[in-house]
Design a protein around this nucleic acid. Structure first.
Lengths: 403, 403
DNA sequence: GAAGCACTCGTTAACGTACCCGGAAGTGAA
DNA sequence: TTCACTTCCGGGTACGTTAACGAGTGCTTC
């Protein structure tokens, strides 16, 4: 039996700032140090067969030992693990994913409305799927009219599909929780994106921090409106967790940071444009006219229309998300700020979490909260260029590998 | 010669919302439609050998045809490309990167100061390198005291290293441009991060939009200071592009958006803490005391110290970046906002651009500008949790592949 | 007619890993 | 002894791709 060959761990451990790497042979008899620079020719990382040859055993045994499978004696297993550690062995993910050529099917259940949010969300998912090499994903996009219309029915059809993963924005949690639990029990990994459904058995959730969104709105209104006044907020369905959280953050921060501002009764627009318009009109013609307005749902167009008709220049408005109709209003200063929920990034990270879980078994953070972007007049162009950015299809073979 | 077999393209092209995929056999004689659901058993994507067998030729020829290499007749090349298109062939990146087992060495040249910016920047690079599956990268981290001290000398040593890629924050562009050009001429791909050096022959640059940073500061001061007053700004070396751009954005936006605010002469702190403290003290005791202050460099501590000593509560301050000393000042409201430059994300995207260029040959965007995050009191917690997040080493084999 | 050349194309060995199959050695019972 | 069974291990194949190596044409040239 040959003794385990001692070798420098191949990868530099995180945190070490190695300036350059030398392999110095031990002093020769003639006293000449021979320092050969290896950094110009990086040594190949050790593989499973290097471990095998170092111990004089076969790669099959090494494989069994490394993966804790049976049919290996405790002795050899220990020796293999020790040498693997010494050599700094790290499994080659590329070779692994080539060998077990896995296929994953993930279902994506998102509404068509509001397109300014869900379209980039879909694009983020698609982009992440395209960029993730080492996996064959099959994305099944399912669409339905709105968050509160058709999701349940569409999801019912997902039960029989036996997906490996599921990405969705849960609408009314009370009604779809049970469906999701059924799907989860089948072994499907569910990740919520844009809104959470904590009691649905989902694996993780990715969204912007809704509470913080509301808090930002409150702080900005508090900073901008410096006299004593009233402010109002228009929200969507409060059964949707996202909306409720925004309201909480808004009200709480207003109370703490802005004693000079009073909050008018909250308006719940129920995702209906006409209703939103009617209620906004009523709000703006009432007696204590609000000096500030926080619109926490993305379909704010009817509200803005009502605002425009009432010719109110002295009301500070904060909206949610970014869509073409908002651009001139931001540029002209009629809207103070809008809180961008970064749907593209949400979709990307949601898919990445799912993929890492499916392919590497890495348990994702139960809930990741992204910071919303505060879009003002001055940084608006930055988001516009990112908005119209067309997605490259990239179907062609990019580089004929040379060399 | 067998005719090319017609088959449904395997991947759904981007943009098509397919609800589910059925393979429907043609009507049988007895009139019964037999619809077999294939989506539960996704068909394997076609490979190079499927093309070969469809045409009755060898995989070698297909490979040569697909990559536009020589030794293929124009006729067969056309046939191969046609069938590849029909089958929806997409090269298997996993198999490719396994075959040509490429090794890349990239040098990272970043200063130690300011640690609150460059440490997360390094972490972003490391994280991206660890996550990038399909490539063997060897990161060489080189450090030197400050941006204006030691970078040139350190870079000189990189000339002989013959790196595949280089990541760095260029300090004084005038002095290091020539070194970078020498390195670039060797074939090293250079990506600037955090600051650009456009005339250095670099491949691309990743940074926050400095002009917009300045503009945001101006807009926020304009919104918050509503009476007629003077504002001041303290910047770093104006030879560094990043600082100069911030100043431009600040001054320009102030002129457009805030006619009621006048800009005092700009203070250039030259990266020296003592000098910065002295100048800030002088500024704050002068006659037209500024009502707003924009500190566009990250080492703002001496300035803040001067502010604190002068007990100025009525001056609105906007700082740059996020580090522990700023936290209590933001929480107490002494600082209006800080503009976070997202060093981690900068490092990550810089590495990703470099990797995609090296491994896939994808030319990166010449300059990507990230939107700086506006950190207020209300969204501060979101960034803190992200600040203390420890990096996982992840050396162990995560999942012993089962099945 | 042999030799040389250019042009096509097929064959085959890797890349590192996972997993199946079967063999060797040992144990115990018939 | 023979057979069955367990424990441990080596050999081999396949994943999809690239690239080196030849082999087979048809053509020109001495």
């Amino acid at each position: 039996m040959s003794p385990p060959t001692l070798a420098k761990a191949w990868t530099t451990p995180a945190g070490s700032h190695s300036k350059s790497r030398y392999a110095i042979s031990r002093p020769r008899k003639d006293g000449i140090h021979l320092a050969t620079i290896v950094s110009k020719q990086p040594t190949k990382p050790p593989g499973i067969k290097d471990i095998a040859s170092a111990l004089g055993i076969s790669i099959g045994t090494v494989d069994r030992a490394l993966h804790g499978r049976s049919d290996v004696s405790a002795n050899t297993r220990a020796r293999v693990l020790k040498v693997a550690e010494q050599l700094g062995y790290r499994p080659n993910m590329v070779a692994r994913s080539l060998k077990l050529n896995r296929q994953f099917r993930v279902g994506v259940y998102l509404p068509r409305q509001i397109a300014s949010f869900f379209d980039p969300l879909r694009e983020g998912i698609r982009a992440a799927a395209a960029a993730y090499i080492g996996i064959n994903v099959d994305l099944d996009f399912h669409s339905f009219p709105r968050l509160d219309e058709g999701q349940l029915e569409e999801l019912e059809s997902a039960v029989g599909q036996n997906y490996d993963g599921l990405l969705l924005t849960p609408g009314d949690p009370g009604r779809i929780d049970s469906v999701l639990r059924r799907i989860a029990r089948q072994g499907t990994a569910i990740i919520c994106v844009g809104n959470d459904a904590p009691r649905s058995g989902r694996l993780a959730a990715v969204s912007t921090d809704s509470y913080t969104s509301g808090a930002i709105a409150a702080e900005m209104l508090a900073r901008t409106i410096q006299k004593s006044a009233a402010v109002a907020t228009i929200t969507g369905e409060l059964t949707i967790m996202d909306h409720a959280e925004k309201l909480r953050g808004f009200a709480a921060t207003l109370a703490v940071l802005a004693p000079h501002l009073s909050l008018l009764p909250v308006i719940e627009s129920h995702e209906s444009p006409k209703e939103a318009y009617r209620q906004a009109s009523a709000l703006l013609s009432r007696k204590p006219r609000p000096a500030g307005l926080y619109i926490s749902t993305a379909n704010s167009i009817p509200v803005l229309q009502a605002l425009d008709e009432h010719l109110l220049k002295d009301v500070q408005v904060i909206t949610t998300d970014l869509f073409p109709e908002l651009i001139p209003l931001l540029e002209s200063g009629k809207i103070l700020a809008t809180l961008h929920q970064r749907p593209f990034v949400q979709g990307r990270t949601a898919f990445e979490s799912l993929a890492r879980y499916l392919v590497e078994g890495v348990q994702p953070e139960p809930v990741t909260k992204l910071a919303p972007h505060i879009v003002l007049r001055s940084n608006l162009p930055l988001f516009l260029s990112q908005m119209i950015e067309p997605e490259d299809s990239g179907s062609k073979d990019p580089t004929p590998p040379k060399r």
